[in-house]
């Protein structure tokens, strides 16, 4: 059953790379959060009962409900519809998604897991989710889609943590969740300031600070 969820996650990756509409990618992030939240239910039960329920509930609450709501609220405040001109077209980004999956499998083939684990695909899928998140930050121009990319990167890491190391002391796991939560909030607030100051949130035009001035700007 865990393999099913992992397969769903890979599909969601490719879908998020394909779509240029911000609202669509927020929805993808919400589904990914939900999927990752459900993974602990299917793991062989070393931890049962109340603690398991607590983890699932908190993860679902934060990753599937609060953060997507906040991002949608930010999108309405900044009223940006879709990516006008992303650096990499939709089709090429999907190709990059597949390439990311390939590299993830190649790297994890070099890293045999020392203990028995429910499915061999956890490490490669986690790596590919975070590589996709990385790639979204690089290829998208809108500030909000960069925040979404960062969130996908966090999801990949969180999946890796939850799936392999469930018995780690929970306090640290939740601490990490809290930090991500606050991180997204601060980024959101900065996006508000950017939209108010610059009247646009296109980060490609946000490159005033530099040591290298292109010829045209140097002589003005």
């Amino acid at each position: 059953m865990v393999d099913g969820i992992l397969m769903l996650l890979v599909l969601l990756n490719l879908f998020s790379l394909g779509s240029t509409r911000i609202s669509a990618s927020i929805r993808v992030v919400a589904y990914q959060g939900a999927a990752i939240g459900l993974v602990p239910l299917f793991l062989p039960g070393k931890i049962t009962g109340g603690i398991l329920a607590a983890i699932v509930l908190v993860t679902l609450l934060v990753k599937a409900v609060i953060l997507p709501w906040f991002l949608r609220y930010a999108q309405k405040r900044v009223n940006v519809r879709r990516e006008e001109k992303p650096f990499v077209g939709a089709s090429t980004s999907i190709l990059f998604g597949v390439a990311a999956l390939g590299t993830a499998f190649f790297i994890s083939s070099r890293l045999p897991i020392p203990f028995a684990v429910v499915s061999p695909f956890i490490v490669p899928v986690a790596l590919s989710v975070s590589l996709t998140g990385f790639f979204i930050i690089i290829s998208r121009a809108e500030a909000l889609s960069q925040v979404v990319g960062y969130l996908i990167l966090e999801n990949g890491i969180y999946l890796f943590g939850i799936a392999l190391l469930l018995e780690q002391p929970l306090l640290v796991e939740l601490g990490m969740l809290l930090d991500v939560f606050v991180g997204i909030f601060v980024m959101g607030i900065t996006v508000f300031h950017i939209s108010r100051e610059f009247e646009h949130t296109d980060t490609s035009r946000l490159s005033g600070l530099a040591d290298w001035l292109p010829e045209v700007r140097r002589n003005e």
Partner: peptide, 25 residues
């Protein structure tokens, strides 16, 4: 310009620290 600097600082450092989280795992 300080807003731009903050935005860059936030995003680059958060990405960096996410990778550090991966290292911990």
């Amino acid at each position: 310009s300080s807003l731009e600097a903050t935005w860059k600082y936030l995003l680059i450092c958060s990405v960096g620290i996410a990778l550090a989280l991966f290292g911990n795992l």
